[in-house]
Nucleic acid binder design. Structure first.
Lengths: 210, 210
DNA sequence: AAACTTAGATGACATTTGTCACTGTGCCGT
DNA sequence: ACGGCACAGTGACAAATGTCATCTAAGTTT
């Protein structure tokens, strides 16, 4: 499993966090092929990953975003706060500007999409380990700047509305009056150029604002 | 890469179809570790996979469902029709009864979820190659029998409504009167025990009926 | 031929949703 | 001290949505 020898000289120690077991194991297998990379822990949720990182002190964390307990973005933010030296690569399905922005704010060193070629992952790990930053080319282009126009309340309300909850229901849940909920929704709809709450929620979701 | 020797004696030839390059390559790496399995082609969409299978004649196809050009389910159906001997394993994120049912109707030999443990994939390949059937345990339990209660029209209308289209808009698209559209939606909502079109669409989607 | 089913339509009605204008409060930056 | 902004609310109105009973014109069954 380590063809070119040099067992321990400069192997990059990696932790992977990914909730789909199949993908998790497969990524580990992919990286283990490389002689200079060693996967020290595989984690299936965010808080598990946090624990693993604090004890194993890996060089690089590769993490999905949407996971149980703690998202990859929360994880990155937490590692930044704690000043563990671990560098973070976000590896996700979603090409959403909001996610990318939040990832960079959380101090992540990489943001890659799962539809990249598999061979590029190991190279990205090496780059990041050297202190470089790797961003998926299509996302790096800028134009992806467009900041989230929604306020916190608008976002909350829109999220629930997108699940099919009625205004009165949402009002109850957030302890607001129904009129206020309708006002926030109306605002969100107009900000996003949608025709109704459902379309608004869809737009916000694809932009990574939800 | 083939520790236990016995290079060619009984290696199972596999084609993988999966649109996320990273996952595709990783799964291939995972299987290549096994001495008795060989990944002969990696495909990133359905029609590409069909071509590859017709020329390479593999023992087993591992395929995602949602892919460009041709879904994994269509692919399975096509292989059944053409009587290639290739056995099919569906490997997907979605635990939807509708998908499972359609997979079995299309003659698939396996239906696995990506959140299984990675180690189980190779074993599933061997089982399927021996003529056995492997279904993800939670889906095999029955109870997942519950058949789709929606009529074709209800399904069509609900799909559009779930995207945020208005009744009048849907009516136009399907050449129906607006009242009829509302009737279908009302029926669907009541059949699914939902409170409105959005919730109904969500329910139908998670059950694999959309 | 009579009975039944299905897709589609109407009209009436109550409820929900979306819009607007307007009133406050508190916080932040200058 | 002032303007701007997020937050919260009210009231009123128009439009969209959801429900129901009822109707017709095919098709199928029996």
């Amino acid at each position: 499993m380590n063809p070119a020898g040099k067992e321990n000289r400069r192997t990059i120690r990696v932790v992977i966090a990914e909730d789909q077991g199949m993908v998790l194991g497969a990524l580990a297998a992919l990286l283990e092929i490389e002689g200079d990379i060693s996967v020290v822990t595989q984690c299936r949720d965010g808080s598990e990953a946090l624990k693993a990182i604090l004890t194993a002190k890996p060089d690089v964390l590769i993490t999905d975003i949407e996971m149980p307990n703690m998202t990859g973005l929360d994880l990155a933010a937490e590692l930044k706060r704690r000043r563990t030296g671990t560098r973070v690569i976000i590896l996700t399905t979603f090409a959403r500007a909001g996610y990318l922005r939040r990832a960079l704010e959380a101090g992540a060193s990489g943001y890659l999409l799962k539809d990249m070629r598999a061979e590029e992952l190991a190279e990205a790990v090496r780059r990041v380990h050297q202190g470089l930053r790797v961003i998926h080319p299509e996302l790096a282009t800028e134009a992806w700047a467009e900041p989230d126009p929604l306020t916190d309340r608008e976002r909350q309300v829109l999220r629930l509305a997108g699940e099919g909850r009625a205004s009165a229901d949402i009002a109850l849940e957030l302890s607001l009056s129904e009129g206020t909920v309708r006002n926030y929704l109306s605002e969100a709809i107009s900000k996003l150029g949608a025709n109704n709450r459902v379309e608004a929620a869809r737009i916000a979701r694809t932009r990574g604002w939800l």
